[in-house]
Design a protein around this nucleic acid. Sequence first.
DNA 1: AGATAAACGAGAGCACCGCTCTTGACGATC
DNA 2: GATCGTCAAGAGCGGTGCTCTCGTTTATCT
Lengths: 241, 241
Amino acid sequence: MSAGRTARERVRAELTREITDIARRQLAVDGAGGLSLRAVAREMGMVSSAIYRYFPSRDDLLTALIIDGYNAVGEAVEKADAACPREDHAGRWMAVCHAVRDWALTHPHEYALLYGSPVPGYQAPMDTVVAAVRDTVVYGRILSEAHAAGTLNPPDVCPPAPAPFGADAVRVREVMPGVPDDVVARALVAWTGLFGWVNFELFGQFNNVILDPATAFDHAMRCHAALLGLPVAATAPPHGK
Amino acid sequence: MSAGRTARERVRAELTREITDIARRQLAVDGAGGLSLRAVAREMGMVSSAIYRYFPSRDDLLTALIIDGYNAVGEAVEKADAACPREDHAGRWMAVCHAVRDWALTHPHEYALLYGSPVPGYQAPMDTVVAAVRDTVVYGRILSEAHAAGTLNPPDVCPPAPAPFGADAVRVREVMPGVPDDVVARALVAWTGLFGWVNFELFGQFNNVILDPATAFDHAMRCHAALLGLPVAATAPPHGK
DNA sequence: AGATAAACGAGAGCACCGCTCTTGACGATC
DNA sequence: GATCGTCAAGAGCGGTGCTCTCGTTTATCT
């Protein structure tokens, strides 16, 4: 079962992988719009129509790259979380934030493909959603464990979550069992705040304004941690330069 | 000065406007990637090359649409703010949030053009930045006035802003004079949180999870208001259906 | 072992795109 | 009335995604 049984299946898997590799390289250079099947074929010494034996359309190739991207950021988040002491829930949250930002900064076009504007006419198939929530699962687990450990003490500053929110909260709670509605709401605030910040930084809204985004980002995520009720220190960790 | 003096200038201005109108309509249907100069020309009964008399390249047409978009959302924000009592700073913040979200929901492709992934190879010229900050100026003025009125009382939950952040804070403070560093930091948190939420909602990250985004959004923005120190009520306003 | 079916690469071709260049007609200005 | 700048039109270049057909190769079934 190491690879496909027949020689044909083996070379097919290898070529498929080569296509996605080249496509990812092009993506990193030119962005999603610059991804060209013909260019991929040219670089492989093939003819453009041959690519369609492996990916029936450009969108299917994009889907493969999107799934790979979600898995890459999910894996980065998982590793960052795993490197922290289990009981340091605030540190794990901060590690997740920095992992997302670091991955986004090193893979800007892939990040844009995942969290930027959807490519026009492209409909994300169901295959993507399972990979898309890998990072969210990690995030939810941190909150869930912090709540179970009793270290999640959200300050009494927000108004109580409105009753109709409860219906949505039960769905979000699937990735953070046991967490009460008010904290679920704050979890959404922090999660959207994390990606909102990275979007601003990556898509240029901070240009000429925030010149030291690393410092500001770290502090902003600490504010989110504080609102969540995670006990967070003031000074920045030794992370980054 | 109502319009250009000569007849030639008048018809030129009119045609330029017609081009942007058609382009905006195409943008609303097919998104930024689907914007085609040839299609615009076809709809105008012109030949494609004639468009280049008015916009030297596709990117220049995009720039015009981007500037229009920034002005549109800026105007929506200004109107929403102006409709509130001056001293109700929390209400004004909530009005701004809902104005941004409502405009984004009614103009999703234009919003994506402004706040989504940058189109590959496109470099935003300087003309765009002045229009881009119209909404931010409104936001900053609300905070500045609330601070001056003494109604801005941020709860003591966040760690103090690190010293290196001060350099960036002075630039942000240009749109919110008088506001101390700690509040400037929280202002960035709230602002990125607002657009981060709208991005998630518009770009599909909430699909199958948040089914009542209006309710959740309103509450999330109230949480941000609370963190900012704006006195905010619990229940939702009569806004929307 | 031989026949059958599936998979494959190559090539031509379609309709579209952004963009450039040239040409001839029109209109404002001196 | 001549001139000069502006304009729409057309042809054309190189690029794109995608389809179809054509021989060839490979795996599988009888």
